[in-house]
């Protein structure tokens, strides 16, 4: 997902006997669906895990601007250009909300940014894949946002108040994202032979990377168990992936496109589609930095950060001068 493989760094879920009284109270509040707020007591591991998860989620939104931003200047109509620009702008907004949520936990946005640029913190693997034709913009909205929404809707109920509120706002704003993607896919799938070819090509390239977004199976992971006990993770990766496949297959059929999986078929017994797992070796390669676009994405972010330094410093210096002049004028008036 946007936050993949977040380590909870604890040693797994403690039994009630192992918990201190404070920890028991804390867990009771979470079990009773009472939100945890910034200055409430919380276990250090809860705080650290949240910083990693929210930070990774925020980074994903920001890096996620790049593959779609790649097509803003080439959008084929004025309306498509505006829709895409508004969507990519929303992603910047979502990154901003999430950084602010992380900041309530005692880290700063600049520190998180530096951790991203140094490679210490990660972002979702999906954004290391290229957008090569216009239908990719449709596929990203349809598949990538579709997968993200699947994860984000339950996260609106997460236990940490600021994170939950950010997710509520994000979900509200994101409702148009997946639809605009599918709308592009419909136009392309019903269009000229070349447009259909673009649409199929986009689906072929984005299908498995989209399945990877949910992360490897975590049914035996101690990290996931702890995160689920703390309600900062709501479903297992496999549950969400299955739900995504079940939802997406009929949508692809409607478009008249084929999902690049020969073994994909409906299973009467389970009531779900059987499908081929993505190549997890490829996933780990991408996570390690060897995806098709890792280097470009980080170069872009690093350049924006370094080239922007003088701007941030210049405006801050002016703000300080202005404040100083104001207080000097006040002193003089008194």
């Amino acid at each position: 997902m946007y936050a993949q493989m977040v380590k909870s760094s604890g040693k797994g879920v403690k039994s009630r006997e192992e918990m201190t009284e404070q920890e028991r109270d804390f867990q009771d509040r979470i079990d009773a669906d009472v939100k945890i707020e910034p200055r409430d007591w919380m276990p250090e591991e809860y705080r650290k895990t949240l910083v990693r998860q929210i930070g990774q989620h925020a980074h994903s939104e920001i890096v996620g601007q790049l593959p779609e931003g790649n097509w803003i200047t080439r959008a084929p109509t004025l309306e498509r250009k505006m829709i895409l620009l508004a969507k990519v702008q929303d992603e910047a907004g979502h990154g901003l909300y999430l950084y602010c949520a992380a900041e309530t936990l005692g880290v700063s946005r600049d520190d998180l940014t530096e951790d991203l640029l140094s490679g210490k913190m990660k972002y979702s693997s999906i954004f290391n894949y290229p957008t090569l034709n216009w239908a990719d913009i449709g596929a990203v909205g349809w598949l990538v946002d579709g997968a993200a929404i699947m994860n984000q809707v339950p996260l609106q109920r997460t236990s940490y108040g600021p994170y939950s509120r950010a997710m509520i706002r994000i979900c509200k704003e994101e409702s148009f994202h997946q639809r605009q993607g599918y709308d592009i896919m419909m136009k392309m799938a019903q269009g000229s032979p070349e447009q259909k070819r673009m649409a199929q090509d986009a689906l072929n390239r984005f299908w498995y990377p989209s399945l990877m977004m949910f992360g490897p199976s975590d049914k035996d992971s101690v990290h996931s168990a702890q995160s689920m006990a703390w309600k900062i993770k709501i479903n297992t990766n496999d549950e969400l992936r299955q739900k995504f496949v079940d939802q997406t297959v009929p949508q692809a059929e409607y478009l008249g496109l084929s999902i690049p999986d020969e073994d994909l078929k409906w299973n009467e017994e389970t009531g779900h589609y059987d499908f081929t797992e993505p190549d997890w070796k490829e996933f780990f390669d991408v996570i390690k930095g060897n995806g098709p676009c890792n280097t470009e994405r980080m170069n872009d972010r690093t350049r924006a950060w370094e080239d922007g330094k003088w701007v941030r410093e210049g405006l801050l210096a002016h703000g300080r001068k202005k404040a100083a002049r104001k207080s000097a004028a006040k002193v003089a008036a008194e």
């Binding site: 601007q65 790049l66 702008q89 901003l96 350049r303 924006a304 922007g308 330094k309 701007v311 941030r312």
Partner: peptide, 16 residues
């Protein structure tokens, strides 16, 4: 052309 490349998030959003 600036979208995704501005010096700070708030400016990125404003330029868009």
């Amino acid at each position: 052309e600036w979208c995704g490349h501005a010096p700070v998030l708030e400016e990125d959003i404003a330029l868009a």
